[in-house]
Amino acid sequence: MASVKTTTLPGGIINRPGSTIDYKTGTWRVKRPVVNLDKCIGCLICWIYCPEPAIIKRDDGKIDFDYDYCKGCGICSLECPTKAIRIVEE
């Protein structure tokens, strides 16, 4: 949150579109998802279910995580049909 200004406009107005990108919600995370690429089949069900979205689609069709915004909710792990995603302590 270091990039958030130290002053605010009246009523907390944000006069710049897309500013949520500055808000790194990944700092809220207490557990993180880890993918086993040998098990990942690139079905992207995790990508559909991720509420953030913090699933990154790799060039080889498999997935990675954007830890700047992943809150560690674990939905990806729950929905993964091949159990390729584990949730581990930070």
Binding site: T8, L9, G11, G12, I13, I14, N15, P17
Partner: peptide, 24 residues
């Protein structure tokens, strides 16, 4: 000075957490 206008998008009434609610 600040108002809703498609040509200059702004956010009014954004969520504010404990880090900013008090100041606003």
């Amino acid at each position: 000075k600040y108002y809703l206008d498609y040509s200059m998008p702004m956010t009014f009434g954004a969520f504010a957490l404990p880090d900013w609610y008090f100041e606003i």
